[in-house]
Simulated scan of single mutants.
Amino acid sequence: MASPDFSAARWRKASGSGDSGCVEVAYQEGWIGVRDTKNKGAGPVLAFTEHEWLTFLDGAHHGEFTLDQLAD
């Protein structure tokens, strides 16, 4: 699989985000990108397939990634 190009992607962040500690997500040609809002142009973009992203969202919806569970 070729790496996706997010240079023209429309990035979104949660409406509850403040000035710090935020991430943004974008969809581009079947890929979902995640980046740190503070490092828009300079930082890396984590790329996930649609399947990977949907699997993560399902797990988050079902409480599989709470801070308590991650800290164990």
Results as ranks from 00 to 15, higher is better:
residue 69 Q to N: 05
residue 64 E to I: 00
residue 45 V to Y: 01
residue 29 E to C: 09
residue 49 T to N: 01
residue 26 A to M: 10
residue 31 W to L: 03
residue 5 D to H: 13
residue 54 L to T: 05
residue 62 H to S: 12
residue 55 T to P: 00
residue 69 Q to T: 07
residue 70 L to M: 13
residue 51 H to W: 03
residue 64 E to V: 01
residue 27 Y to F: 15
residue 67 L to I: 09
residue 45 V to S: 02
residue 44 P to E: 03
residue 17 S to M: 02
residue 1 M to Q: 11
residue 58 D to G: 10
residue 43 G to R: 08
residue 54 L to C: 02
residue 24 E to S: 14
residue 15 S to E: 10
residue 13 K to L: 12
residue 26 A to Y: 09
residue 60 A to D: 06
residue 11 W to Y: 07
residue 38 K to Y: 06
residue 48 F to D: 04
residue 24 E to C: 12
residue 1 M to D: 08
residue 10 R to L: 11
residue 50 E to I: 10
residue 13 K to Q: 14
residue 11 W to A: 03
residue 8 A to W: 01
residue 68 D to V: 07
residue 50 E to N: 11
residue 1 M to C: 10
residue 39 N to M: 11
residue 40 K to W: 07
residue 39 N to C: 08
residue 32 I to K: 02
residue 16 G to N: 06
residue 48 F to W: 11
residue 42 A to P: 00
residue 48 F to V: 06
residue 70 L to Q: 05
residue 14 A to E: 10
residue 10 R to I: 08
residue 18 G to T: 08
residue 9 A to W: 11
residue 3 S to M: 08
residue 66 T to F: 03
residue 17 S to D: 11
residue 50 E to A: 15
residue 19 D to G: 15
residue 31 W to R: 13
residue 58 D to I: 00
residue 41 G to N: 10
residue 43 G to T: 07
residue 15 S to Y: 05
residue 32 I to F: 11
residue 11 W to S: 02
residue 55 T to S: 14
residue 33 G to T: 03
residue 60 A to H: 08
residue 9 A to G: 11
residue 60 A to W: 05
residue 11 W to V: 02
residue 51 H to S: 13
residue 3 S to I: 00
residue 29 E to R: 15
residue 38 K to H: 08
residue 28 Q to D: 15
residue 19 D to S: 11
residue 23 V to H: 00
residue 72 D to N: 08
residue 17 S to G: 09
residue 55 T to G: 13
residue 68 D to G: 00
residue 47 A to M: 05
residue 30 G to K: 12
residue 14 A to T: 11
residue 47 A to H: 10
residue 26 A to T: 10
residue 19 D to A: 08
residue 31 W to A: 14
residue 23 V to G: 01
residue 34 V to G: 03
residue 3 S to P: 00
residue 21 G to H: 04
residue 58 D to Q: 12
residue 46 L to P: 01
residue 20 S to V: 13
residue 15 S to W: 04
residue 49 T to V: 01
residue 41 G to R: 05
residue 2 A to P: 14
residue 27 Y to N: 07
residue 6 F to E: 04
residue 3 S to C: 00
residue 6 F to Q: 04
residue 6 F to A: 05
residue 28 Q to E: 15
residue 58 D to A: 12
residue 16 G to D: 04
residue 21 G to F: 03
residue 55 T to N: 13
residue 25 V to H: 06
residue 3 S to W: 01
residue 20 S to K: 09
residue 37 T to N: 13
residue 28 Q to C: 15
residue 66 T to S: 15
residue 58 D to V: 01
residue 24 E to A: 12
residue 10 R to M: 06
residue 43 G to S: 09
residue 71 A to H: 03
residue 18 G to R: 08
residue 67 L to C: 00
residue 40 K to D: 10
residue 21 G to E: 07
residue 32 I to D: 00
